[in-house]
Amino acid sequence: MESTKSKYVSKLVNELKPSGIRRFFDLAAGMEGVISLGVGEPDFVTPWHVRESAINSLEQGYTSYTPNAGLLELRQEIAYYMKNQFNVEYSPKEEIIVTVGASSAIDIAMRTILDPGDEVIVVEPCFVAYVPMVELAGGVAVQVQASKENDFKIQPDQLEAVITDKTKAIMLCSPNNPTGTMLSKHELEEIANLAKKYDLLIIADEIYAELAYDEEYTSMAAIEGMKERTILVSGFSKGFAMTGWRLGFVCSPPEISNAMLKVHQYALMCASTMAQYAAIEALKNGRPEVDEMIKSYRRRRNYIVQSFNEIGLECHNPGGAFYAFPSIKSTGLSSQEFAEQLLLKEGVAVVPGDVFGESGEGHIRCSYATSLEQLQEAIKRIKHFIENL
Rank of each mutant, 00 (worst) to 15 (best):
E2G: 06
N14M: 04
E15H: 05
L16K: 14
K17C: 14
K17M: 15
S19T: 12
G38A: 08
V39L: 14
W48P: 01
H49C: 03
S53I: 02
I55V: 13
L58H: 01
E59T: 06
E59K: 09
T63D: 04
T66Q: 06
P67S: 09
G70F: 03
R75C: 12
Q76H: 01
Y80V: 09
Y81F: 14
Y81H: 11
M82L: 14
V88Y: 02
P92C: 03
K93G: 01
V98E: 07
T99D: 01
V100C: 15
A105I: 03
I108F: 12
A109Y: 05
A109K: 01
M110E: 01
I121S: 10
V123P: 13
C126S: 12
F127V: 06
A129N: 04
A129F: 10
V131C: 05
V131E: 09
A137Y: 01
V140G: 02
V140H: 07
Q145A: 14
S147E: 11
Q155S: 00
Q155D: 00
Q155A: 08
Q158F: 08
Q158P: 05
A161W: 02
I163M: 12
I163W: 09
N176K: 06
G180S: 04
G180Q: 03
E190N: 15
I191G: 08
A195I: 04
K196C: 03
E215L: 08
E216I: 13
Y217E: 04
I223T: 06
T230H: 02
V233W: 08
K238R: 15
T243K: 13
L247A: 04
F249T: 07
E255W: 12
E255F: 10
I256W: 04
N258K: 15
M269P: 00
K295A: 11
K295P: 02
K295T: 05
K295M: 07
N302C: 09
Y303S: 06
F308S: 06
N309A: 08
N309R: 05
I311G: 07
L313V: 10
H316V: 08
N317L: 15
F322N: 11
Y323H: 14
P326Y: 11
L333H: 00
F338C: 09
Q341H: 09
V348H: 03
V348R: 00
P352M: 01
V355H: 06
H363N: 14
R365E: 04
C366L: 03
C366G: 05
A369R: 04
S371T: 15
L372Q: 11
E373R: 06
Q374L: 08
Q376G: 01
F385H: 03
N388M: 08
L389H: 00
